[in-house]
Amino acid sequence: MALRGNLRDFSFTQILNLINLAQKTGLLTVEGPGEMAHVYFRDGKLALALIGREENDLSAILARSRKITANQAKVIRERTRSMTDKEVGLLLINAGYLSQKDVLDSLQLYSIEVIRRLFTWVEGIFQFDQSSAVPSGKIPVRVDLENLIVEGSRQLREWEQLQEEIPSLDMALKFTDRPGTNLRHLNLNLEEWRVVRYVNPKNSMRQIAQVTHMNDLEIRRIAYALLQAGIVDIVRPDGKPPVMPPPRPLPPVNKEEHKSLVQRLINRIRSL
């Protein structure tokens, strides 16, 4: 079955995490704005990552990692035009130009570099095809995804934390009632002052963002900073503090009666 979606809804880090946990094998195709990436996985490990129109044959990758010069890469490419990466790699190793480690390290570095670039893609369509394996002529590597996921997660974390702290931009900000808070003594930056100008229980954060031409991340970041500094509180747009319902446990009932009731429901559903 398909595993496809949009990076806006399911980030690249989350996809990697899923592939890692489910130990998936296959090809992840990510179509970003104006560029496309192909990332192969084997048993939940990164096997190969290629991006867009970039030259990604072995000689280009070796030149990128400075194992060979650009001129050497050009010569190799010309002389091995009909050969696969595997054949070229073997040729270079057997001829004593490079070690197997040099080749694998370069490929690994390149694939990791591609993954790092993909972390910055927030727009795009992805699709995972479990039936595709690394093309036979390519040399697969084997990179654990955990470290890469941690790296990607750091980038995502700020956004997620802000979303958790400020789940809805439909709430408003109001200055705290605490005596002694004097805005004049605060060292706010220009962006923060722009937001502070509109702090009022009548203005939702979304409205403030619109007026100040800020995106969701920017307004959340500033609102969070002001919250942390104790300058503002989050309130409903009419000024009332948000009311969180207390957890309401089930009323105590006779256990046997309750069991019998559920058992009757089970029997009835089974008979439908």
């Binding site: 079955m1 398909a2 595993l3 979606g5 899923l18 489910a22 969180m244 957890p247 446990p249 089930l250």
Partner: peptide, 27 residues
């Protein structure tokens, strides 16, 4: 949070081509 009662999650539309497998959904 409203009521700590038991719950289950139904991965609906499993008949659609684009449906994510239940275990992928869990993750």
């Amino acid at each position: 949070a409203y009521a700590p009662t038991p719950y289950v999650v139904a991965a609906n539309k499993q008949d659609c081509d684009d449906a994510w497998e239940a275990e992928d959904l869990r993750l």
